[in-house]
Design a protein around this nucleic acid. Structure first.
Lengths: 205, 205, 205, 205
DNA sequence: AATGAATGAGAATTCATTCAT
DNA sequence: CATGAATGAATTCTCATTCAT
């Protein structure tokens, strides 16, 4: 059992090394421009090993995507959990999004690139399951806030874009090098703006 | 001279046909997945012709990108021009963004994909020139609004994300098929929310 | 048109060169053991050229198969055509089979290998068409001979094996180097034996 | 010792399971198209196990080939042994060939494919030994029949093709699915035809 | 300008085989 | 003996690009 266990550890380590190598390549070169050979070199593994564990380049991408999404969602859920009111919840989402991107630059870059890709179809189901979990919980809390009049009653598909959209846009620009500021200086403004955009407002001209 | 002229017309038409074929392919398959042969087939042209006119696959992509950006910017500038106050200007931007995406689906999809690409370096300068033109004019008007207290005084790099971010997010989801609503029903909410996010706010809660 | 024509000639020559190179490789190494690179080298062409003309390795194999079958069938039909009676027809078939194999060693070797292969599915229809043509004509003549009592009335699927089977077996052994005789010395015996095997016979013990 | 013995049994069973798995794969996919992994899956063994017992893929193929040939030859020898005269001997060969193929479809398919292969060089010697045994005995009987005038005096390399060729051709067509009849209905015709083809004949026109 | 055959570097993937446990 | 992770050479095929006509 000791031996067995050690083997498992070694194997798992190898898998992880491949994922990390792949992430480094994907973030730097983009997924399509990354070759299996790039990954192999970076992970110090053999081609065969990569295929043994992930079946294809796409398989690597999908596994990485799943890992990324899960990490993001877990963090997001935890962050929102702590919020005691609508305003705090919105703020928590914005800040977490920003912080996560800053602390996981490569992964963030990768997820951003992947959002529209066909590549990840194989894990789509698992992603959907994960999403359901997290987002249903979020949605439920949202409904309470709406019912209470804390935030405006809007078409449901607008909440996520309104809360995260501007932040996402900033993060995207930052990750691609289009802007070059210290994101921490924008935290409060973004959180505040998101909150305002959700208010039921008396119109001003 | 007649013949010459006709040839020119035919030539221009051929160029346009190639661009249109390329756009259709790019929007459907993505740029990297599109082959010269795909374009050739779609445009009913020959490989040689494509290379004669655009020099490379990248050349086609760049030309298309430039064309798209210019069209978008021209429309945006015109739309904002008409606005007589801050609120109208913000609304104009949001609505134009939404409308343009709806009326130029393929092009919008393409520009979205290209935003982070290296591919367009060759036209970057021209793009920058165009940007300078449009955005400096926008920025100038913005400053007036800020000075007047019509909108909040925020870090300059936040204005674009706050105004267009949520809309962009919605458009992106729509273009990639992640949501499936009639975007027209979201126009007012998005415009209104953008405006609110820019208000100097008395804090609630 | 001259230029056009010359181009066509050059192109056709290239195609033929590839087929010939492929045949040499297939006959020598077997189809599966032959690599595209082997063919490329032998035909003095480029990989791209092979794929341009035949689409895949399988495409080359299929084209070659078709060419071989057609040549064999044309020769066979012509040979049988001349025969004025049953015995002459049977003899013509046996001799032609033997002669064709001797004069087209490589092609014969190749066709033999291919007989059971999946590889040629793409041209199966064309083969079937060709077969119908030739074999229906043969079958018709056969029926006449049977009706007349020149040859025995047997299950239809036995005629081909009885006439050609022994010869085929000898050819096969010769082509694979299992036997090493001058096939010409066996011509008459094989023709005679085939004829005898088709006789309506008074049983001898 | 009990354990030892049981291990031996288990081991032998494992070897046999691998051979059976391999045969199933070879017959279905062809030898070259079969991968070690296919065999492993089918035999419910591990890659290591296969290599432990047979050394290589070729080793598996060779062992199987040897096994097949031996079974065929043993059966053939036994069948001919019983024949009391030339005619019975010829008939016995034809019928046995047909029956064996029907009862050992997969193996027959495999041997057919292997006849020209290089793969089996390692067991060639053993095969040759086995052949010598059987065929020398057959040849000896043949000589007697020829001397007695029971069958025609022909070049020695023609006897096997004449006796078995047509049957072989039919079997081949049947195994590859080219014809789809009940072989049992062809037994007598094939045996009879083989016999006739060996007769010393007064020529008929 | 237009055409499409030709080129060949490069990519993904397969698979027999080895070897540590 | 058994296991299966690891290896890497070899192969097929793709595709941007060139160039003769």
């Amino acid at each position: 059992m000791q031996i067995e266990a050690r083997r498992h550890v070694a194997t798992a380590a190898r898998k992880q090394a491949i994922l990390e190598g792949a992430l480094a390549c994907f973030a730097e070169l983009g997924v399509e421009a990354t070759t299996i050979d790039d990954i192999r070199r970076r992970a110090d593994a053999s081609v065969g090993s990569i295929y043994h564990h992930f079946g294809s380049k796409e398989g690597v991408a999908a596994a990485l995507y799943l890992e990324g999404i899960r990490d993001y969602q877990a963090g997001l859920a935890a962050a929102v959990e702590k919020a005691r009111n609508a305003r705090a919840a919105v703020r928590a989402i914005v800040l977490f999004h920003l912080d996560w991107a800053m602390q996981n630059t490569a992964l963030a870059r990768y997820l951003l690139e992947m959002r529209r890709a066909e590549t990840t179809k194989s894990v789509d189901e698992e992603i959907r399951d994960a999403n359901r979990d997290v987002f249903q919980r979020l949605a439920k809390r949202l409904e309470v806030f709406v019912a209470r009049g804390d935030i405006a009653d809007l078409p449901r598909e607008l909440y996520a874009p309104l809360i995260v959209g501007p932040t996402q846009e900033v993060v995207r620009a930052w990750l691609t090098g289009r802007i070059n500021v210290d994101l921490r200086k924008l935290r409060d403004s973004l959180a505040e703006a998101a909150w305002k955009s959700l208010q039921t407002g008396q119109q001003t001209t």
